[in-house]
Simulated assay, not measured.
Amino acid sequence: MTVHDPIKAAAQKARAAIPDDNAMLRAAAEMSRDYAVANPRIYWPDMLASALVGWAALGGAMLVKDAAVAIGCAIVAMMALYRAASFIHELTHIRKGALPGFRFGWNLIVGIPLMIPSFLYEGVHTQHHARTRYGTADDPEYLPLALMKPWSLPLFIVVAALAPVGLILRFGVLTPLSLLIPPLRRKVVAELSALSINPAYRRRAPEGDFARMWHWQEAGACVFALALVGSVFAFGWKPLLVYMGVHSAMTVINQLRTLVAHLWENEGEAMTVTAQYLDSVNVPPPGYLPALWAPVGLRYHALHHLLPSVPYHALGKAHVRLMATLTADSPYHKGNYAGMLPLVGKIARSTMTAR
């Protein structure tokens, strides 16, 4: 599925071995010290308001009879719940004790009702940031998409559209069955318990406090999935279909965001930090649309790989300082792009030359 041209393979190795830019890394380290504190007065209102607007709009889409109003409610619900769901990324980086109760609150209000409890991401996403894992076969969140066949890109999006069906099967069917069948349980834990895009990734069984957190979150998602399917008998098909349509659209947008979060040009080589940055993408202002399709700081994805401990609300400030501080020839300036469409076009053109 990926390129095997010797010349291109040599070019990929050269990109992976790009020397680290010490000036950029020193400046990033300074930003980490200055902006590392997560502000609960930003996190809580943002997450709660997004969830409240999202669930209220979803209810409107289910109940309103006027088609145009219902569609409008569904769009609002999708965007608001997408923003609320994006806080799962912050949960993986928040220091222990920094935001008391936030993880529990997010799971109760957002994660379980969307069947994406945080255990699916916690302990997984941090491996994507590991210095020796990024872009390798051990990275759960990396595929050399730019080097794969052209049909791989639409398939990447279509799979995301089916996410709500897959989540209902995962939690409503496989969770209870796996409790009765130990071999199935091992398979579910290893292969169906991570929000990853690498099909070869296998997860270890949880232990200790994380295992206890995993269990109650999984139980909650299981109950919700069963209740969601059971709602058909009480309320008919419309609420379920509206929920799944909004969920599917939300997941597709996130998958498109994922598609342009990196350039996906590495084929398994361990990369320097600077090479990892250059394989990642910032979509900074002045554009406004990235704030919608890459919310909660995700528009600064390349910067996030330099500053994984910096909370989302400080990334914009850190970006402005780095742009002003670093010289024009710094690699930092090469990680900034104008928007989604040029990036999709760049990756699509790259797939056209894959062998």
Score class of each variant (00 low, 15 high):
218 E>R: 15
250 M>I: 09
92 T>Q: 11
330 S>Q: 03
2 T>F: 11
221 A>G: 09
109 I>E: 09
235 F>K: 09
142 Y>A: 05
82 Y>W: 15
130 A>S: 14
353 T>D: 13
139 D>C: 05
260 V>K: 01
219 A>H: 07
223 V>W: 14
319 H>E: 08
137 A>V: 08
132 T>N: 15
24 M>T: 07
119 F>R: 08
163 A>H: 11
92 T>M: 10
348 A>L: 00
148 M>Q: 10
275 A>L: 00
30 E>V: 14
163 A>G: 09
181 I>R: 05
324 A>V: 00
7 I>Y: 07
76 V>E: 00
91 L>M: 09
299 R>G: 03
261 A>C: 13
216 W>Y: 13
326 L>P: 01
28 A>K: 05
16 A>P: 03
190 A>F: 03
2 T>C: 10
304 H>S: 02
333 H>P: 00
250 M>W: 07
186 R>A: 12
10 A>E: 02
214 W>H: 14
243 Y>I: 11
80 A>M: 03
30 E>L: 15
54 G>P: 03
252 V>G: 05
215 H>G: 13
131 R>I: 13
124 V>P: 01
8 K>S: 01
148 M>L: 06
264 W>R: 05
267 E>S: 13
305 H>S: 04
253 I>Q: 05
71 I>E: 02
126 T>S: 11
35 Y>H: 06
145 L>H: 07
83 R>Y: 01
88 I>E: 14
51 A>N: 01
50 S>R: 07
139 D>F: 05
110 V>C: 09
95 R>T: 12
345 G>I: 08
53 V>D: 09
342 P>K: 04
133 R>D: 14
215 H>V: 13
236 G>C: 04
108 L>C: 08
281 V>H: 02
184 L>P: 07
68 A>L: 14
78 M>Q: 10
274 T>V: 06
210 F>E: 12
69 V>E: 06
108 L>I: 10
49 A>Y: 03
106 W>M: 10
196 S>D: 10
240 L>Y: 02
128 H>Y: 01
244 M>Y: 04
95 R>K: 12
253 I>G: 07
193 S>L: 07
302 A>P: 06
30 E>R: 15
105 G>R: 12
29 A>F: 05
237 W>M: 15
336 N>K: 04
75 I>L: 13
196 S>I: 00
248 S>N: 06
317 K>F: 01
63 L>H: 14
314 A>Y: 06
65 K>I: 06
120 L>I: 11
78 M>C: 04
176 P>M: 13
73 C>S: 00
213 M>N: 10
35 Y>F: 05
240 L>W: 05
305 H>M: 02
53 V>M: 11
107 N>K: 08
